[in-house]
């Protein structure tokens, strides 16, 4: 028996595989397709204080080996999450991680307090980096704002805090360091890369929002580089690596680059069981290679 479990803050995950926020709904949608208990953790869609209607359509277009999305964080708001979604998730034996989004520090603090009180939530992922909404990037591009936000959240909750970093910045390490200094237990990266696509016959942008976030295999090399960079600079903070992971092979690259856990996002759209297939594939790799503990892989890449 190989050990596949890893630790992220106070959480022990049975395997390193999480779901990517916004690509797995609220878990219930996928509960027939796969056993939620086979996941390392279930990360749900970004939740805000008030319900949000999101952006106009088209919201997703296909690009080379990926998609651009501009959903605009449509969600039912925190009351809806706690009353309608959380009771279902509490029935499972899997860590539940809620991704939070707000306009200002007070929104995030309010959400953190509500979710801490609610019970059944194991960690919070702080989305400071959604590129598809106005003001969505304010925190992520500025280490000082990130520090203030995470400091306030650290006071508000004992839950494990995972700060989700944006790749759309000049220096991802400085934002990561600010979050770590403010008490974030872990960092997750990357959120989507800002991009666009044009219909040449109509001479129009293909997304109603003009720009959107690129995800899927197209972004994997960029994500992998960023995970490695942040791990080099901040070797003591656990990282959740994501961006284009489709197979166990992809996931193991992220572990070697320094991620303690990984998330499978867009791949779920193509293969509904992608997340648990990746988890099974990692275990198989460990067995084949005679590696007793998945933790041996973390950051083990050499030049």
């Amino acid at each position: 028996m190989v050990n596949t479990s890893v630790k992220i803050g106070k959480l022990t995950l049975r395997n390193p595989v999480m779901t990517g926020s916004g690509t797995f709904g609220f878990g219930s949608e996928m509960s027939e397709a796969l056993d939620l208990n086979a996941l390392g953790a279930c990360v749900v869609k970004s939740t805000s204080r008030e319900p949000r209607l999101g952006n106009p359509t088209p919201r997703i277009v296909e690009t080379s080996s990926g998609i651009l999305n501009a959903i605009g964080l449509q969600n039912g708001g925190i009351d809806n999450f706690i009353n309608e979604k959380l009771p279902f998730l509490r029935e499972y034996d899997v860590p539940i991680i809620v991704n939070l989004v707000g306009y200002e520090v007070a929104d995030y603090v309010y959400l953190a307090e509500r979710l801490t009180e609610a019970g059944g939530v194991h960690a919070l992922e702080i989305n400071i980096s959604c590129p598809n909404v106005k003001h969505g990037c304010d925190f992520a591009v500025d280490p000082k704002l990130t520090f203030e936000l995470i400091t306030a959240l650290r006071k508000a909750t004992d839950l494990t805090l995972i700060t989700k970093l944006s790749p759309n910045v000049t220096d991802v390490v400085s934002v990561g360091r600010a979050a770590a200094d403010a008490g974030s237990d872990a960092l997750s990266l990357i959120n989507t890369l800002l991009g666009t696509a044009i219909d040449i016959r109509k001479r129009k942008f293909r997304l109603a929002n003009v720009t959107g976030g690129l995800s899927g295999p197209a972004i994997k090399p960029v994500a992998l580089r960023m995970v490695w960079q942040v791990h080099q600079a901040l070797p003591n903070i656990p990282l959740v690596g994501m961006g284009g992971i489709v197979t166990a092979h992809d996931a193991i690259e992220f572990l070697l680059a320094g991620a303690t856990a990984i998330a499978v996002g867009t791949a779920t759209f193509i293969n509904p069981t992608a997340a648990i297939d990746v988890a099974a594939g990692i275990e198989k790799f460990l067995e084949e290679q005679g590696i007793e503990d998945v933790n041996e892989l973390i950051g083990a890449v050499t030049r």
Partner: peptide, 28 residues
């Protein structure tokens, strides 16, 4: 009929506006 990237209710791209003001997923 609208574009359906996932078809499983998880991506929120296939939304349809309803007369009562709700914005729901076409797929699920």
């Amino acid at each position: 009929e609208v574009g359906m990237p996932c078809g499983m209710g998880v991506c929120m791209a296939c939304v349809v506006d309803l007369a009562d003001g709700r914005r729901v997923r076409c797929c699920t």
